[in-house]
């Protein structure tokens, strides 16, 4: 079945597209090879759909760098939507407002032991 949120589909769909500016910080830049990019998504799309689109574009390493084997965000992956952490909204199911700016951060996790 065609992924309705694939890059190709997003371009084909004429109705109600919105733009999202995605900015990368930290270790994810190594993988994406850019500091930011502009994308088009169907109006009302969620963060999860944004990531589907990005994973289509950047491949499996992108998904593996940000998600657990079960598909939850890694502890060291932070997603801000217009400056607000999606964990304090609806997580990956947070709806993206039009003309949003999404910050995707990937940092080291702290280690310990003591």
């Amino acid at each position: 079945m065609e992924n309705p949120f694939s890059a190709e589909s997003a371009v084909r769909v004429n109705r109600d597209l919105m733009s999202v500016q995605v900015l990368y910080f930290g270790l994810i830049r190594n993988l994406v090879g850019a500091a930011e990019e502009a994308l088009s998504l169907p109006a009302g799309a969620t963060v999860r759909q944004l990531f589907d689109l990005l994973a289509d574009k950047h491949g499996a390493p992108f998904r593996d760098a940000l998600f657990t084997a079960e598909g939850t965000l890694l502890a060291n992956a932070i997603v801000l939507l217009d400056g607000k952490n999606i964990l304090y909204a609806n997580g990956l199911d947070t709806e993206i407002p039009p003309d949003s700016s999404a910050h995707i951060l990937l940092t080291m996790t702290a280690i310990g032991g003591g």
Binding site: T68, A69, T72, L74, A75, T109
Partner: peptide, 17 residues
Amino acid sequence: IPQGFARRRKPPYPATK
């Protein structure tokens, strides 16, 4: 699945890729 400050470190579950 831990949240909040506990996410500063890597939880053992869910397993990472």
